[in-house]
Design a protein around this nucleic acid. Structure first.
Length: 338
DNA sequence: AAACCGAGCAACCGCACGTTG
DNA sequence: TCAACGTGCGGTTGCTCGGTT
């Protein structure tokens, strides 16, 4: 019954790998492969290591084509957008970045990228109240770290020149945790106030999104130039700023600053004249989607005429997490966000 | 020059889930 | 059918190194 014990941990070496160990492992794997059994591998290879340790060493360091060193801006954006969509599913994120390991990306996020995003928060304080409201509503509409997602896959190893396709793939079966999160949207038409999580495309690239899975539709925002609209209702408009949406939010308690930085970071990646597709809503609630276009350096929500103060207040008042943005004792020019 | 501190990163730990016998 | 096992994953730890005091 069952299998042989994994490994005798008492006799296992731990800690950093020596060059000799690396060479042994690499040589063995290149000649023999894993043989489908990592646990038995160290003994065969003459290593006093746990199989799990060997596997980790191989995957994170010795494997061919591993890319070490600085992450590019494109990689940053891909990581951000995927993190926005699926949270800390590092293995999935790593799958979109050839040569990068999940451990690498996880470390990079925790030590650098997160701080980099936090650094983008400050410029937000320069924005107008209306835009603060927009961002506030972004936050409430966004459960960045827990939302279900649209996954992107790169068709080439070069993230800067690749096209992306929305993939309705097997990853999704692993995302059940996301769906368990308590977010509900009660109404339908899309507005800039319901921007959800974000996925970014290279400006010149076309988004191809079959979105066969209703769940995949849930929570998508992307950037594109002459992008084709792949939303379920085919609507491609930039008039959402005139459509008011009411929704409920009962999302989790994510790190607001982190979300803010991420949203701001993604927003800043869009150039004038480019469009941003926004989509939110599971099939059961109706899909919310459409396009907004950045014109004259402004998003639709930037126009003071687009949002009255009461509307902004209402938007914000529905949020459970926006006190850091809006001081409702103040009005007009004195609205504070920090 | 030494002590201290923080950032970065490699590696470990423990859990969940699929597979095997 | 089910317990034992293997694998993969995300979170965490702890070591190393460079910068600062």
């Amino acid at each position: 019954m069952g299998r042989a014990p994994c490994c005798d941990k008492a006799n296992m070496k731990k800690g950093p790998w020596s060059p000799e160990e690396d060479a042994k492992l690499k040589e063995f794997l290149e000649k023999q492969g894993t043989g489908g059994n990592w646990i038995a591998l160290p003994q065969k290879a003459g290593l006093k290591r746990c199989g799990k340790s060997c596997r980790l060493r191989w995957l994170n360091y010795l494997r061919p084509n591993i890319k070490h060193g600085e992450f590019s801006d494109d990689e940053d954006r891909i990581i951000c957008s995927l993190y926005a969509n699926i949270g800390s599913r590092w293995s999935i994120i790593a799958a979109q970045l050839p040569g990068r390991t999940d451990n690498d990306i996880k470390n990079y996020w925790n030590t650098k990228l997160k701080k980099k995003l936090m650094g983008v928060i400050n410029p937000l304080a320069q924005r107008k109240p209306q835009q603060a409201a927009l961002f506030s509503s972004l936050l409430q509409a966004t459960s960045l770290l827990s939302s279900p997602s649209t996954l992107l896959s790169s068709s080439s190893s070069s993230s800067s020149s690749s096209s992306f396709t929305c993939s309705n793939n097997s990853y999704y079966s692993n995302l059940t945790r996301s769906f368990a999160d308590p977010i509900s949207f009660s109404s339908s038409p899309m507005s800039t106030s319901s921007l959800a999580t974000a996925s970014m495309l290279h400006p010149q690239e076309t988004f191809v999104g079959p979105m066969q899975n209703d769940q995949v539709k849930d929570s998508l925002m992307m950037f594109g130039g002459e992008a084709s609209c792949s939303s379920s209702d085919g609507s491609c408009n930039n008039q959402m700023s005139h459509v008011k949406e009411e929704y409920e939010y009962s999302g989790g308690t994510n790190n607001n600053n982190e979300q803010m930085g991420l949203q701001n970071y993604l927003y800043n990646g869009v150039e004038d004249g480019q469009k941003l597709m926004v989509s939110r809503g599971a099939a059961a609630h109706g899909v919310l989607n459409g396009w907004i276009e950045k014109q004259n350096e402004l998003w639709p929500g930037d126009n003071p005429l687009d949002y009255g103060l009461e509307e902004i207040k209402q938007l914000i008042s529905t949020s459970s997490c926006n006190s850091f943005l809006f001081d409702e004792n103040k009005t007009g020019e004195t609205v504070m966000y920090y």
